[in-house]
Deep mutational scan, measured.
Amino acid sequence: FSITQFVRNLGLEHLMDIFEREQITLRVLVEMGHKELKEIGINAYGHREKLIKGVERLI
Rank of each mutant, 00 (worst) to 15 (best):
K50D: 05
K35H: 09
F1W: 09
L58K: 02
E13W: 10
I59L: 11
H47G: 03
L37K: 00
L58Y: 12
H47E: 15
E13D: 10
R21W: 06
R48H: 03
T4E: 15
G54R: 03
H47K: 08
L15I: 08
G46E: 15
G46L: 14
L12R: 01
D17L: 10
Y45Q: 11
R21P: 04
E13V: 09
K38S: 09
I40T: 02
E36M: 06
F19P: 01
N9L: 14
N43K: 14
K35I: 06
K35M: 07
H14I: 12
H47A: 14
T4H: 14
S2R: 07
K50Y: 04
V7F: 07
E22Y: 14
L51S: 00
Q5V: 12
I24Q: 06
E20W: 07
E31F: 10
H34C: 05
I52K: 04
L51M: 05
I40N: 02
G11I: 04
F6I: 06
G11P: 01
M32E: 01
E20I: 15
R48Q: 06
L10R: 01
R57H: 11
F6A: 02
T4D: 12
N9G: 12
M16I: 12
R48T: 03
A44S: 14
I52P: 01
L51W: 03
N43W: 11
M16S: 10
E56V: 10
F6E: 00
K35D: 11
I52D: 00
E36L: 05
K38L: 14
V30Q: 12
H34D: 05
H47S: 12
K53T: 08
E22P: 03
E56N: 10
E49C: 11
L10S: 02
R57P: 03
E36K: 07
I40Q: 01
R8E: 09
R27C: 15
F6S: 00
G33Q: 05
R21S: 08
F19T: 01
R27V: 09
R27Q: 13
I24R: 02
L12M: 08
L12H: 00
K38D: 06
L10W: 03
T25C: 05
E22Q: 11
Q23A: 11
I3D: 02
N43I: 15
G41L: 03
T25D: 09
E39T: 08
L51Q: 00
V55H: 03
R21H: 07
K35P: 09
L12A: 01
G41A: 04
I3Y: 03
I42C: 05
R8K: 15
N43P: 09
V7L: 15
N43A: 11
G46D: 15
G54W: 05
E39H: 09
F1D: 12
D17G: 12
F19M: 06
T4I: 12
E39F: 07
D17C: 10
L26D: 02
I59G: 08
V55P: 01
E20K: 11
I59W: 09
L10C: 05
G11V: 03
R8F: 10
K38I: 14
G33T: 07
L58I: 08
V7Y: 02
E20L: 13
N9P: 02
K53P: 01
S2Q: 10
D17W: 14
A44I: 12
F19S: 02
V7M: 11
F19N: 00
I59T: 12
L26I: 10
M32S: 04
H14L: 11
F19I: 06
T4A: 14
T25E: 06
E36D: 08
Q23R: 14
K50E: 08
I40P: 00
V7N: 00
M16Y: 05
S2P: 11
R57N: 13
I40A: 06
V7C: 11
R27A: 14
E22K: 14
Y45M: 10
E39D: 13
N9A: 15
F1L: 13
I18E: 01
D17K: 12
L10E: 03
R57I: 12
K38T: 10
H14F: 15
K53L: 10
D17R: 09
V55M: 10
L26S: 03
L15R: 00
V28G: 11
R57G: 08
G54M: 06
L10Y: 03
G54N: 06
R21I: 05
A44C: 15
I52R: 06
R48A: 06
E49W: 07
K50S: 09
E36T: 05
H14C: 15
H47F: 07
L10Q: 04
V30R: 13
G46H: 13
I24F: 04
S2H: 10
H47R: 03
E31C: 14
V30S: 14
H34Y: 04
L58G: 02
L15F: 05
G54H: 05
E39I: 07
S2G: 15
Q5H: 11
H47N: 13
L10K: 00
L58F: 12
A44K: 13
K50F: 06
F6M: 05
R21G: 06
E49P: 03
E56G: 09
E36Y: 04
T4G: 13
Q5L: 10
G11S: 05
I18G: 01
M32L: 08
L58N: 04
E31M: 13
A44H: 15
R27K: 14
E36F: 06
K50H: 06
L29R: 02
G46Y: 15
G46R: 15
G41H: 03
H34Q: 03
T25Q: 06
R48D: 05
I52Y: 02
L37G: 01
H14W: 08
R27W: 10
G46S: 14
R21L: 06
F19G: 00
N9W: 13
I3Q: 01
L37C: 04
E13G: 12
K35V: 07
L15G: 00
F1A: 10
E20G: 06
R8V: 13
V7H: 00
E20V: 14
G11M: 05
L58C: 08
K53N: 08
R48E: 03
L15T: 02
E56H: 13
N43V: 13
I3N: 00
R48C: 10
L15Q: 01
V55T: 07
F6K: 00
S2W: 07
E22A: 09
V28T: 13
I18M: 05
T4Q: 14
G33D: 06
E39Q: 12
M32V: 03
L29P: 00
E31W: 10
I59A: 08
L15P: 00
S2K: 07
T25V: 05
Q23I: 05
T25N: 09
R21V: 05
L29C: 03
L12D: 00
G33F: 04
H34N: 04
H14G: 08
K53G: 05
G33K: 08
E49Q: 11
K50W: 07
G46M: 13
I52T: 02
E56T: 09
V28I: 12
L29Q: 01
F6N: 00
L15V: 06
K53D: 06
H14M: 14
H14P: 07
I42S: 01
I3T: 05
T25H: 05
R27E: 15
V7S: 02
V28S: 10
E31D: 14
E36R: 06
L37M: 08
F19K: 00
E39M: 12
L10V: 06
I18S: 02
N9V: 10
I40H: 04
L12W: 01
R57K: 13
Y45F: 14
M32G: 02
N9F: 11
G41Y: 05
E13F: 11
K38V: 08
V55A: 12
L37E: 01
Q5I: 10
L10I: 08
E56A: 14
Q5M: 11
L12P: 01
G54Q: 05
I42H: 03
R8S: 13
I42P: 03
E22W: 09
S2M: 09
K38C: 09
R27N: 12
I40M: 09
D17Q: 13
L51N: 01
T4W: 10
Q23C: 10
I59R: 12
M16G: 07
E39L: 11
N9Q: 11
G33C: 05
Y45C: 09
E56P: 03
N9D: 14
E36S: 05
R57M: 13
R21D: 06
V28W: 08
L26Q: 02
L51Y: 00
N43M: 12
E39P: 01
I18Q: 03
F19C: 03
L37T: 01
M32K: 02
E22L: 07
G54C: 08
L29S: 01
M16K: 08
I18F: 06
E13P: 09
K38Y: 09
